[in-house]
Amino acid sequence: MPLTRIAGLEVDLIRKKIRSLRLTVYAGGRIRVAVPQHASEAAIEQFVQARRAWIQQHQQRFAAHTPRPTLQYVSGEQVEYLGQPYELVIVPSSIRPTVVVQDTQLQLHMPAASTAAQREAVLTHWYRLQLKQMLPDLLLKWQPVVGRQAASWGVKQMRTRWGTCNIGARRIWLNLELIKRPQECLEYVVVHELVHLHERLHNARFWGLMDLFMPNWRQYKADLNQVRLAPGTPPDAD
């Protein structure tokens, strides 16, 4: 996809049906800005210019191959959801723990005395629910395109793969970490695993089918390959 120069930066600009402008910096330094379909050039320029320091900070961190810091689950840390960075905000609350997405914040309503492990467990549970809610619609979208149907599916944490497929049982597994990546990357893995129900191996036939069903798959695969699920292991859907 051709890049657009905005505020002196090369940006992957995408117009889509959303209400607010969204910015993502990927490992490797690529900048992606998703904007409402009718957003003006001036508004986009102002949006990117206001975030130049944040963009450059993240690009420098990626360039230096700085490992992602371990979350302490305290207010002010950055967490990801569907490819977007959110500021984690811990909101003291006596009600049942909940997660609320509001503007650029991901609010975790928890007892003030909650531990980091308890906060992590609540956020992980929420991530899992969001991914499980998305998958049925994505399967309904892509199974007719691919011409294969999964008998069952599941979500689990995987250290080295974004997805797997048990061809005999026609069961696919998706990595929970996909909820942190852009939705296009999640859809790529769904299609990838469904294509394995046509072809077991990653051979010319397999990639030819990927070209047929999802012509832009290479971009999404490259985005995922910027993320290391385990040290020293370049992950990919399998």
Rank of each mutant, 00 (worst) to 15 (best):
L13E: 03
R171V: 06
P69H: 12
R200N: 00
G168Q: 15
L108A: 08
L178D: 03
M1D: 09
S75N: 07
V74E: 09
W207H: 13
N203P: 12
D223T: 13
P67I: 06
E177K: 07
A222N: 11
S75W: 04
G232E: 07
P215I: 07
G83F: 09
I95Q: 15
R205H: 10
E77R: 11
L140S: 12
R52E: 14
Q105I: 00
L3G: 03
A43T: 12
L201A: 11
V155L: 10
K16V: 09
L23Q: 04
T104Q: 14
P182L: 02
P144C: 07
P92L: 04
N203V: 09
Y188I: 05
Q226E: 07
G147F: 04
L178Y: 06
S75P: 10
H65Y: 04
C165V: 01
Q46A: 15
V101W: 11
S152P: 06
K16N: 09
A112T: 04
R218G: 09
T98S: 13
R52C: 09
Q143D: 01
P234T: 14
P69E: 08
W162Q: 06
Y26T: 10
L3Q: 08
V145P: 10
R218Q: 15
A237Q: 03
R68H: 07
N175P: 08
Y73E: 01
W162H: 04
Q183I: 14
R5G: 00
N166H: 09
D103L: 08
Q183E: 15
I44Q: 09
I172Y: 05
L71Y: 02
T160D: 01
N203D: 11
A64L: 11
R218V: 11
L224S: 00
M158R: 02
Q130C: 12
L212R: 15
K141D: 04
H38M: 14
L131R: 01
L176Y: 06
I167Q: 08
H202P: 07
A121T: 05
R148L: 09
L82H: 10
I31W: 05
